[in-house]
Design a binder for these strands. Structure first.
Lengths: 337, 337
DNA sequence: CTGAAAGCGCTTACAG
DNA sequence: CTGAAAGCGCTTACAG
């Protein structure tokens, strides 16, 4: 039914011009209310569907945003970024935009291959979700397309990005542990892997410094190899009373590992995570963690992007969105013992 | 750099027509190899990017497929369909198509609101990933757009869909349990919830029938309420030696529940799942399960869709893709006891 | 092998 | 309030 009805078809049936139909349907002025209603009614009756493409052609706008996620951050066990994408997509809908996903394969990232949606001009800009290697980033920025980085940043302060407040998130969380009487606190994460893990470590470090607590070198526990693959966690010589993990997934692994070694959580060791993703509630006990506010971050990124599309010279720099500590059952209060 | 280079720009610089440029760039005949090379080189030099929109306008093709997932099947704990989407998207790329995700909200599904990408004609067809309510389905099919159902089907045999072979998958799995000496085997799943759960139940039932094993009524254990929310599992009066679960997620919950009640898996009870998703390896012990072949299913769905786009009268009906049993550690061999 | 003309379905800017 | 003309960047069908 209703194969390809155009504005012209409606115009002809009503004996008006297609310009008038366009004005009526787009709620622009220059049409009497009476005619507008007649046109809209007929459009509905004829099963008219607006053709965004034709509008795009005129305006040079595509009403699509490319969303790039490096393959490394996807896969069966990594739902975090896909969930992020989902929320981002919903927010873009509110601007009448679609988010076209592009998973950047490991090879394409290494060989600096730009995504097809770039080469074929299908999008007005790109939101990059998850840290890319530096050369790829540089190439991308060189093309001059509108780019917003989401959940990471690079060393150029003028590049627009939206990040979660890793630093203060972990800082607050570590302060909380210290307030509950913990002193022997370890950090789990490869502090060279990504800028956000680094910031989380620095938040932990600041809290420790402020409370004048020193810690041995083996209290910084590496959790992945150079390829980002998780490795076995090496416990410190002196067992800490609490572990600050750079993400919930590794916290989940840590809890399992500890329990296998005969430790109880939180009785023997407390564990906190970051992200509030599926692993936070999968872990037994459920994890105290920092919730990443994906919705708010998506809103920031989307509105940044919209401004950039309208004015490509607009620049916003780094925007930080605060997370929220979610208190659950993985931390023990050491004060009244 | 290179703001909006068009074929005409290239043509003017070379003193040829844009028709020739078009032919050269699209590798169509009618251009000398020499000229073709010159044109391609200049295109690269000028940073030319092909404008798919203009082509779309001429052809009436959008080179996008809408992928609809009901909101119910998404969320932090349900990575399965998002993973499916990801694979589907990659397969569509091979056809130079993009998959535009649309999460269908619960309200839109109930109020029969068609997605914006339908109303604004941004796609050539829809792949629906996950069972929708009947009225919505009917409305969708009534519009006449190309639709392929993925991972479910309805009662109209002429509607194209690609499903995993639930029936034989569970049938094989149950046979396997019986071969290992199990006789008291329960099924976990609401057999009215979706057609695939029903088929899984029937596969179980067929295997039981064939082996002439009867089972009490409470061996069919409901796992969710009418809204699809998981509920507490009610154990049968007589404890089975094995449970066949309709999916890995519920199998994971079952394992946890059993362990809390003091049962060991697989020593006291064996448990098998379906899907081979994240929950299969999250469960301790890891689950024996049926792997859904998302890649093969995506390929079928994509190629079906491509044929429908070329010839809207083409029809393929129900296509079944076989899964594979993945043997892990959640089943006990009862034979030599 | 090469290209002039027409058109895909809209919108913008202008004239009446 | 209403509409004729031109154009967005391509491609198709045809002529030379």
């Amino acid at each position: 039914m209703s194969e390809n009805v155009t504005m012209r078809d409606i115009a002809e049936r009503l004996g008006v011009s297609s310009v008038t139909v366009s004005k009526a349907i787009n709620d622009k002025e220059g049409v009497s209310e009476e005619l507008r209603k007649k046109i809209k009614d007929l459009a509905a009756e004829m099963g008219y569907r607006f053709n965004t493409l034709a509008k795009s052609m005129k305006e040079g706008l595509f009403y699509n945003i490319g969303i790039i996620i490096p393959e490394r951050f996807t896969g069966a066990t990594q739902a975090f970024y896909m969930q992020f994408y989902q929320i981002l997509n919903k927010v873009l809908e509110e601007y009448d935009y679609s988010g076209i996903l592009h998973i950047l394969s490991v090879e394409d990232e290494e060989e600096l291959v730009l995504p097809r949606i770039y080469r074929e001009k299908k999008v007005d800009g790109f939101i990059i979700l998850g840290q890319l290697n530096i050369q790829y980033m540089d190439m991308f920025l060189d093309t001059g397309v509108s780019v917003v980085l989401l959940d990471f940043y690079n060393d150029q302060p003028e590049v627009d990005c939206v990040i979660t407040d890793s630093f203060y998130g972990v800082y607050d969380l570590t302060n909380y542990l210290i307030k509950l009487g913990h002193r022997d606190i370890a950090f789990v994460g490869d502090i060279r892997a990504t800028s956000s893990i680094q910031d989380r470590f620095l938040g932990y470090y600041k809290s420790m410094l402020e409370h004048d607590i020193s810690f041995p070198e083996d209290y910084v526990i590496k959790d992945r190899d150079n390829k980002g693959k998780y490795i076995d966690l090496k416990m410190p010589a002196k067992m800490p009373t609490a572990f600050v993990c750079n993400c919930d997934q590794i916290a989940y692994h840590l809890v399992t590992t500890l329990q296998k070694q005969g430790y109880s959580v939180p009785e023997d060791c407390s564990v906190v995570g970051f992200d509030n993703d599926i692993f936070a509630t999968l872990a037994q006990p459920n994890l105290t963690t920092v919730e990443v506010n994906m919705e708010e971050m998506s809103r920031s990124a989307a509105s940044m992007m919209m401004r950039k599309i309208k004015d490509s010279s607009s620049s916003h720099g780094r925007v930080t969105v605060k997370g929220k500590i979610i208190y659950r059952d993985s931390v023990r209060d050491l004060r009244n013992i």
